[in-house]
Design a protein around this nucleic acid. Structure first.
Lengths: 335, 335
DNA sequence: CAGGGAACTGCAAACGTTTGCAGCAATATA
DNA sequence: TATATTGCTGCAAACGTTTGCAGTTCCCTG
């Protein structure tokens, strides 16, 4: 039993004494076939551990049961969590996931799209992609955007409410008496960077604070860059009472830089992070930061793409995820 | 032109005035076909942007040009880097990668293996997998092991030389005059954890130091755990002059714990990390640690699996990667 | 000049499914 | 009782490739 030799639908049909088409129907449209036949066929299917050949099946159905995920990189923690959420949900729904990293490089993204269409993949999830158009993609393919608005094109869109997050965050600082607030952001030119800067400014203005460009430092996304940028920011003679970091990873550098200048967090300068990466709770002092559930988002995104694959004409949905503050020890009240 | 409609080998054949089989040969065995015909056919292939249908192709060749990567999780940085290296090399060689996270869960791993064989995937890369057997896998499938020895079974094996790393590391500390060395390791029960503990002990003994079980603290893999474990370790009354952490992430917690007890790194206690994660250079003080090139390893692993797919009978290869010390500021000389 | 390769190409079967159509029995309807 | 309907199943075409075999042309050799 359980022969690992390639056992086909034909053999199952012979064993069960029915036509291959009936076996196929048992597997794909069980309601079409008589209960007794169905059970008999299924018993052989199970006994032989029969697995339909995906090539033959795909050739007919033009479906691969594979979904592609395109992220800017694998190493940013929130993308890794996202990927995990997506992969697990897909697996659960009997889909598989191929993953591509675009490095925010348009040329590479094009190549990826081409590959995706070559592979006859059923759906694509683009996370924080910058590309304007996807002509390389096969026309009908299901798409979902994360952190980029595709609603005008009828594409499902999942957005992290960065504006709302900065609103909460600035309000929180203002309530604690802070007015001179610096911002250390990752790569200003990147999609994510631009969004954060604009959200930061908007919130500052809303709460009546003045936006000083000198207090916004560009740092790409590593801790080291965060350190350097913070140092520069402080050396310019700015005297912020609080610094917002574009990510928790950056915060590590921010705190390091502050300490290295003989100042203390939060005694002299308060710091607030973004994204609540694991480990942030164990920094010294533990980092106050903003969080959302990227894993859960991944799960919902996966559901959306499968739904879209099976129902291409449905209305596109748009969902935003809100972030909330995790209060720890890096923000001091000035009141 | 560039019609996105499904254009088949048949149409290309018609345009070029040859038989479909010739077109197929142009694509797969160009040396078999006359140069002039080849060029003519190719010109149409390009003009129409013809892409062979992977289902039809797979049905014939029984090859999917897809490789699976199974890792314990996506979020550990070294796995993310590994995945990146693998994915990029595969893409370059016209393969794609599906990825699965096993959570070091045997049941899940079984399901993954089953999925892999269902999908008719050409090869699998197992990273730090604990599973003893893979009966669920189709028999002939190409395999590569990372951090687990498969040489007896004729499987390509890529191993990180943890023993060598701990040897270097302990020697380095001993040379600086340290004799009382603590170790904060991630989950002792895990494959990676066990390996590190044994390597640590072996090196300690080699350099004539006594191994005190009280100085080996279990911590899973987060910074927070590292913090707690270190605190416990120090509260037991141990007085290590140096602490080795099982990963840089753990180091963050280790340093935090030391600082929170009013001690200073490296003045009172030296700390050395493992894996050189980005950001480690920006800690305060910058972390001395061990590194290796996980991205490069990924590239080589990908090459190995492709090679193995195309040449199943070749001798299995076994390669070890050595780690080296990155000296920064967390280790003090006692001499 | 006959015979034997070599170089190239066409023919057709095969890969393992899915699905529209048709057939057939059993049941419901007129 | 004749006819329509329903429920189930078989038949065979189709999906788009690859490849063994055989055929054709052309050149080389004896």
């Amino acid at each position: 039993m359980t022969k690992k030799d390639t056992i086909t639908i034909l053999e199952i049909a012979k064993m069960s004494g029915v036509n291959p088409s009936t076996v196929s129907r048992v597997l794909n449209h069980p309601e079409m076939v008589n209960e007794k036949t169905r059970e008999r066929v299924m018993s052989f299917v199970k006994e032989c551990n029969y697995q339909p050949n995906p090539f033959a099946r795909g050739l007919q159905t033009k479906r691969s049961k594979i979904v592609a995920l395109v992220v800017p990189n694998f190493t940013t923690l929130s993308f890794a969590n996202l990927a995990r959420g997506i992969q697990e949900k897909l697996m659960q729904k009997d889909y598989s996931m191929v993953i591509f990293s675009s490095h925010e490089d348009e040329l590479l993204e094009k190549k990826i799209c081409q590959k995706i269409s070559e592979l006859h993949i059923d759906g694509v999830i683009f996370a924080s992609s910058m590309m304007p158009k996807y002509e390389e993609l096969s026309i009908g393919i299901a798409k979902v955007f994360i952190d980029r608005d595709g609603s005008k094109e009828g594409i499902d869109t999942f957005i992290l409410d960065v504006e709302g997050a900065f609103d909460k965050l600035i309000k929180y600082l203002v309530d604690k008496g802070h007015t001179k607030i610096g911002f250390v952001v990752g790569d200003k030119e990147s999609f994510a960077g631009l969004k954060k800067v604009s959200a930061f400014k908007k919130a500052m203005i809303k709460y009546g604070l003045i936006v000083d460009e000198n207090m916004i430092a560009d740092a790409f996304w590593s801790s080291k860059e965060g350190w350097l940028a913070t140092k520069k920011l402080l050396e310019k003679g700015n005297k912020p009472t609080a610094i917002v970091a574009g990510s928790d990873t950056l915060s590590v550098g921010v705190i390091g830089a502050i300490s290295s200048m003989g100042l203390k967090v939060p005694k002299n300068i308060s710091v607030i992070g973004f994204n609540n990466e694991p480990g942030s709770e164990s920094l010294n002092p533990p980092l106050t930061t903003m969080e959302y559930d990227d894993y859960g988002m991944g799960q919902e995104v996966a559901e959306a793409i499968i739904d879209r694959i099976n129902n291409p004409e449905r209305d596109n949905l748009i969902k935003t995820y809100t972030m909330s503050i995790i209060e720890r020890k890096t923000v001091r009240s000035l009141n």
